[in-house]
């Protein structure tokens, strides 16, 4: 826990009530984020990426059981109540949601959406807030911003609406942006445009960002560091640009191999055997062991700790010291699937 970090998540475990019992969705998640840096969260659906971000924004459903710490600039986020919590949400963190259409009120104008936080939280006069909204829309590359302010969400395309969402999130100049798959619902060309805008805004405003994505390439181009989630746990953390060249966990390696590359012609892509596990269903020992080509008996005994692998990063694989560097080379070998 360095004094430098803006956000520090420490041994975070979250359980949610599902059908009358508490189910673990996050298990012992720890990471830090420095001011102005971008951290990518990758992993498959249900691996806990979104839940992590929601926990940080204090948007968990009622009845959630949280242990561990989330500290923002030294303040314990789960101690915040009432006005302090509102201030934290209003000024410190901003969330960008995946589905911009569902996350904007269909009966309110774009202008209302952009100015409401400024007018109510920062007590900015309406005129001034509107001028600021026009500026912001121009910054995210939207033409005729004055006219857009008078339109309703349904009159805008998905890509445009997501830009509005980004503008709204940035409007309050937060110190941390939580982007929950902001481009997944968009088509590929729009995705690229929106991504460029988001990245530019993030560095111009000097905001830190947690960026959730399924796309390893995207994470590597946008983020400084990437952490990989599996079954509610962090299984790997390292520099985003090295992740897909030199993965530190068999799961990440399998993800990398299951992805086509532009430079190389691929035949059948190797799929990961078995199916994703949630934290709740995870077996004893390493959660990934049942699907892992490198699993040994030792893997199934106890949950492996997050190991430091030299200066490169962290890995939750006990065999990493011996396997390091050879994970992708093993691509050709057939995988033994333990039933």
């Amino acid at each position: 826990m360095t004094a430098m970090s803006l956000l520090s998540v420490d041994s975070l475990t979250v359980k949610l009530p599902v059908a009358g019992e508490m189910r673990t969705v996050l298990k012992d998640v720890s990471f830090e984020l420095e001011p102005g840096k971008a951290l990518g969260l990758v992993g498959e659906s249900g691996s806990g990426k979104s839940m992590t971000v929601r926990t940080i924004a204090r948007l968990l459903p009622p009845g959630a059981d949280v242990t561990g710490h989330v500290r923002f600039d030294g303040t314990e986020v789960f101690d915040l109540r009432g006005e302090a919590l509102r201030k934290y949400r209003a000024g410190d963190v901003s969330m960008i949601f995946q589905d911009a259409r569902a996350h904007t009120n269909p009966v309110r104008r774009i202008g209302d959406f952009l100015t409401e936080a400024l007018c109510t939280n920062q007590r900015m006069p309406k005129k001034q807030a509107e001028a600021r909204a026009v500026e912001l829309l121009a910054e995210v590359g939207i033409h005729n911003p004055e006219q857009r302010l008078r339109q309703y969400p349904h009159e805008l395309s998905g890509g445009l609406l997501q830009r509005v969402m980004i503008a709204a999130a940035v409007a309050v100049k937060p110190r941390l942006i939580l982007a929950d798959e902001p481009t997944t619902a968009l088509d590929v060309t729009t995705q690229a445009e929106v991504m460029v805008i988001l990245k530019r805004m993030q560095s111009e405003y000097g905001m830190a960002m947690l960026f959730i994505t399924h796309d390893l390439e995207l994470a590597s181009s946008v983020c400084d560091d990437t952490i990989v989630f599996y079954a509610g746990q962090v299984v790997e953390r390292q520099q985003a640009s090295r992740l897909h060249r030199d993965p530190l966990h068999p799961y990440t390696a399998a993800l990398v191999r299951a992805r086509p590359e532009i430079e190389r012609r691929a035949g059948r892509l190797p799929a990961l055997p078995g199916h994703p596990t949630t934290a709740y269903e995870a077996p004893d020992g390493c959660a990934f062991a049942p699907r892992c080509a490198f699993a040994q008996d030792a893997c199934r005994v106890s949950v492996p700790p997050l190991l430091r692998i030299g200066e490169q990063g962290d890995s939750r694989c006990v065999r990493m010291p011996e396997l390091h560097g050879s994970l992708l080379a093993a691509a050709g070998t057939t995988q033994e699937v333990t039933p």
């Binding site: 924004a57 948007l59 919590l85 509102r86 201030k87 934290y88 949400r89 209003a90 000024g91 901003s94 969330m95 949601f97 589905d99 569902a102 996350h103 904007t104 009120n105 269909p106 309110r108 409401e116 936080a117 109510t120 939280n121 709204a168 309050v172």
Partner: peptide, 22 residues
């Protein structure tokens, strides 16, 4: 419980304001 109300909550708006407006 709708998504757009969650957006409003995530922006730190007061509950009374959210109820009235959204």
């Amino acid at each position: 419980s709708s998504d757009h109300v969650q957006t409003a909550i995530s922006r730190g708006l007061a509950r009374r304001f959210i109820v009235r407006r959204h």
